[in-house]
Write a protein that binds this DNA or RNA. Sequence first.
DNA 1: GCGAAGCGTGGAACCGGTTCCGGACTTTCG
DNA 2: CGAAAGTCCGGAACCGGTTCCACGCTTCGC
Lengths: 334, 334
Amino acid sequence: MGGIADVAKRAGVSKATASRALTGAGYVSPTTRQKVVSAARELGYVASTSAVSLATGRTRNVGVIMPYVNRWFFAEVLEGIQRSLLERDLDLTLYDAKPGTVGRQRIFDDYLARKRFDGLIAVGLEPADHEIERMHAIDRPVVMIVGDEGTTCTVGIDDDHAVRRATEHLIGLGHTDIAFLGGGGADWAMVDRRRLSGYEAAMAEAGLADRAQHVQSEVTLPGGYAAAADLLGDTRRPTAVVGVCDEVAIGAMIAARRLGIRVPSELSVVGIDDHEFAEMFSLTTLEQIPREQGSAAVDLLLQQIAQPDRPPVDVRLKARLVVRASTAPPDTRA
Amino acid sequence: MGGIADVAKRAGVSKATASRALTGAGYVSPTTRQKVVSAARELGYVASTSAVSLATGRTRNVGVIMPYVNRWFFAEVLEGIQRSLLERDLDLTLYDAKPGTVGRQRIFDDYLARKRFDGLIAVGLEPADHEIERMHAIDRPVVMIVGDEGTTCTVGIDDDHAVRRATEHLIGLGHTDIAFLGGGGADWAMVDRRRLSGYEAAMAEAGLADRAQHVQSEVTLPGGYAAAADLLGDTRRPTAVVGVCDEVAIGAMIAARRLGIRVPSELSVVGIDDHEFAEMFSLTTLEQIPREQGSAAVDLLLQQIAQPDRPPVDVRLKARLVVRASTAPPDTRA
DNA sequence: GCGAAGCGTGGAACCGGTTCCGGACTTTCG
DNA sequence: CGAAAGTCCGGAACCGGTTCCACGCTTCGC
């Protein structure tokens, strides 16, 4: 009921002409087009997406696969993607692939193979080799946000550069006891590794290699809180902390406050992200704009869909230093 | 390439038989079924979702429409839904319908009408009348999480009851100066309204109707912070605060800390949600488990899809009081 | 022993669009 | 003025599955 055949009949034309009139492909006289269009409107006609997909081979849908949706970065990226797709009349199907779950396995083994999408955006996925293989096997363009430059398009900030700047900011203020907080452990993400190495490089360049200190923590606000509570409880504590991301950095600020350590006079804290809470906590940070990364990924993906044989492109965005009130020269009286 | 026809040929049977063998519908002898299954495996056959949808009228996909994905509650619900769908081999397409955006309008006007899904879950949508009309017009089951009981199935906690208990908890501790923080303003959500009325009812029952005080704020952590900073700056401040949700309550706690007001001795704070940060802040709260609401919604939706003419059901979950260290009797020395 | 019921299978219609191809008509151009 | 090119449209094939129906065979019940 309500198919294009009905529209065609009402407009007094063939299915073929009705289709051409509505899709805009091929020759149709202005008057018949008008007739078809108004017939469609009168009937409330909406093309069946499955029929269109079957006939054209295009789904007008993109898949987004990410390990979390409840973390700030991922949620923001998702919104950026969604907004871009909405402008272009494309749908979005979401795959929530938490590391180490059977769900993730099923997504890679079954869901992706169904090819419900014209292209795939993978966000912070840290895929294993066989997972990468799966993604290529589906023969659809893939763009990764926060991923390895290599065979596919990628979008992301220059993590190394960002952390380097964060660390240099502290060094420039006169700090020498600077700890890096966050990451480590078993499933230690590549981004976090890259960020740590940026920190180490900056420390080394300043001749502080032997003062470098990496404190492990879960990469969440409570994780940062817990790790910082340990670190700062010691009387021999650093004068500054670089958080692997803002959530960890804010956790550290909260811990400091609880311990009665003043920020920034007794402890400087810098993060990376410009999280929505950063301003409230007056956190100095390096701003990345995940929404923009999301929409950049959509742009890239659509290019790849249009021209599948174009070589992969990498978009690397620079992070801007936002100085707020969580950083200051170390307290020399101590 | 790789259609069911190829599988059929390789197994030496007709398309019809191959289809029956793979879907499990109709009579197929065990031996032919086996032949078909292994032929399919050898060819790496995966059925085209669009062809299946076209033929069966089922998409094996559910739509989820929500105004935010970056807020805790929504993200958790989304994960709950996703997990449930994953178990049942269903896909999920996400519609991000921010209030007052053209995107939202397009979702209701165009996207939903495409009927890419067998059913729809609407989360905290606060739909306008014409939006509700649109949702019914698509002729697919709808389940709402946090919505009006009425024509559709709904899932949610009993907000009135929850806030009542939160308020009674404070009254039981001896507080009489209790402010309700959050909500109000132009696009003031229905949940928040319901919660306020629960507070007012509890105050009235305790004979404190004239002490009731509603302080408006944006329903976010920074919003709670800002509003509480105003409220608590005054010397004539309440001894306890009920936050419309945990984010607002936590914002209030942070503000109190900044102002040097001790929690809980000088100020008790209670929230609603059991947000992931609640434990870190030792916030007394009423626990709701959004993930469970998500999976309950999926269950309901699947029932409705299976039996579309069943009367709508409402699932109302009770919230459990979790007492932590943010509430105590008022400081009588003051 | 024979009709009915149950099982296993293939042919063909069908879901609802798009697109190829060819015919008719009009315009352009040499 | 005739051929070629351009425009407009309809018939039919096609995308890749599912399902109705008919048919042959076996089993069962009376």
